[in-house]
C-alpha cells in the first residue's frame, strides 16, 4: 500500500522540510501520495504536485483548516488512512503536534523523529538527546512516522505532474480556537536549513552583545542560533534555540560562541559537518565535539574574527 505524506505549508507556500519528508517517504515505498489541508492553499498544492516523488496530491480545503489546528486536521487524515500503510510527516512542531493525535485515533504506536529508513517497518531514531540510536521495528498494521528532516536530503521540487484530487473536509472541532500567531520575520536564512549557523550562549552576557554575533552572521550569510540559557536569559527569542527541546540543525559550519556544550545543546547540533567553538573555559564540553577550538574571551575574539573575515577577498555564501 502507498505512503501518505502530510504536507506542511503556510497556505501560500510549502514549508521547505516537506521536501525532506518526501524523500524519507519515498524510501519507505515509491508510491507516495501527499495530502495538503488548508484554506486557499491552491498554490502550495500545485507546488506539491510538481515534486517528482509525489504520485498523487489530495487537497482538502475549509476555513477551519486555515491555522493548522491538530484537532481539525487529525480526523480528516484518519478518514484517508484506510488506503495507506504509512502516514508520515516532518518531526517539527507542526508534525509533533498532529501525528500522535492521528496515531491514537488509529490505535497505532507512533515512531517519532526517525533519522533512517532501514526497511518499511524498521527505522533508526535517536533517544536520550541523541546519545543513543535505537533501531525499532513497528508491528502495527498502519504505521505513523515522524521524520527528522535534517537527516534526509530535500527531493527535487520541479518536473513532477501529479494529479490533484479534492478531498472531503471534516467537521470543525469547536473546543479549540486559534487566536494569533507571532512569527519572527528575518532576512537571514532559516535556522533549520542554513549552511552556516552562528550561535551564542550564556557567555554573551546580554542581549545587546548578541549584535557581535549578528555582525558575524551577516558577514557569513549565516543563521543565528542560541543555547537554551541564552533564550531563558532573554538575550534572544525562543525560535533561535538549538537543542533537544529546540531545533536540530545540520549545517556545513556551526560556530558555538560562549556555549559550554551541555548534552541538551549538543543534541541539536553535533551532526554539523564542521564545528567551531570559541570559549574561554578550555575544559568546556563543547571542545570535545569541536573540529576547531579557540580558547579565548569571546569579547576579544569576535571583533578579531570580524576583522579577519573582512580581510578575506571572497566568502562563500
Amino acid at each position: 500500500m502507498a505512503v501518505l505524506l502530510i504536507a506542511e505549508h503556510n497556505n501560500k507556500e510549502l514549508r521547505p522540510f516537506t521536501l525532506n519528508a518526501a524523500t524519507a517517504a519515498s524510501l519507505i515505498d515509491a508510491d507516495v501520495h501527499a495530502v495538503i489541508i488548508g484554506q486557499n492553499s491552491e498554490t502550495a498544492a500545485k507546488k506539491l504536485s510538481e515534486l517528482p516523488l509525489i504520485k498523487k496530491v489530495i487537497s482538502i480545503e475549509a476555513p477551519h483548516y486555515e491555522n493548522f489546528t491538530a484537532e481539525n486536521f487529525a480526523p480528516a487524515i484518519v478518514k484517508l488512512a484506510g488506503n495507506y500503510s504509512h502516514i508520515v510527516c516532518s518531526a517539527n512542531t507542526f508534525g509533533k503536534n498532529l501525528m500522535p493525535r492521528i496515531a491514537a485515533h488509529l490505535d497505532t504506536s507512533q515512531v517519532s523523529d526517525i533519522i533512517k529508513v532501514i526497511s518499511p517497518d524498521t527505522f533508526l531514531r535517536p533517544i536520550y538527546a541523541g546519545n543513543a540510536f535505537a533501531t525499532v521495528k513497528t508491528n502495527d498494521a498502519k504505521k505513523c512516522i515522524t521524520i527528522r528532516p535534517t537527516s534526509f536530503e530535500p527531493c527535487e521540487s520541479s518536473g513532477g505532474t501529479a494529479t490533484i484530487e479534492k478531498g472531503e473536509a471534516g467537521e470543525e472541532f469547536s473546543n479549540t480556537k486559534f487566536i494569533k500567531r507571532e512569527e519572527i520575520k528575518s532576512d537571514r536564512p532559516e535556522l533549520g536549513t542554513a549552511r552556516i549557523v552562528v550561535s551564542g550562549g550564556r557567555g554573551m552576557q546580554s542581549g545587546d552583545n548578541f549584535k557581535l554575533i549578528t555582525e558575524v552572521a551577516d558577514k557569513l550569510g549565516a543563521a543565528i542560533g542560541a543555547s537554551r540559557a541564552a533564550v531563558d536569559a532573554g538575550y534572544i527569542s525562543n525560535d533561535h534555540q538549538v537543542g533537544q527541546t529546540g531545533k536540530v540543525v545540520v549545517p556545513d559550519l556551526y560556530i558555538a560562541i560562549g556555549i559550554s556544550g551541555a548534552i541538551q545543546h549538543l543534541a541539536g547540533m553535533k551532526e554539523s559537518k564542521v564545528i567551531v567553538a570559541i570559549n574561554k573555559d578550555g575544559e568546556a564540553p563543547i571542545f570535545s565535539v569541536a573540529d576547531y577550538g579557540l580558547e579565548a574571551d569571546l569579547f576579544e575574539a569576535l571583533p578579531q574574527f570580524m576583522a579577519e573575515l573582512n580581510k578575506l577577498n571572497t566568502i562563500q555564501k
Partner: peptide, 19 residues
C-alpha cells in the same frame, strides 16, 4: 507494539584541534 531491536552509541566525532 514496537520492538527495540538494538540500541547503540551514535558515531563518534573524531577529535578536533585547538587553534
Amino acid at each position: 507494539r514496537i520492538e527495540q531491536l538494538k540500541v547503540e552509541e551514535p558515531p563518534k566525532r573524531k577529535a578536533g584541534i585547538k587553534v
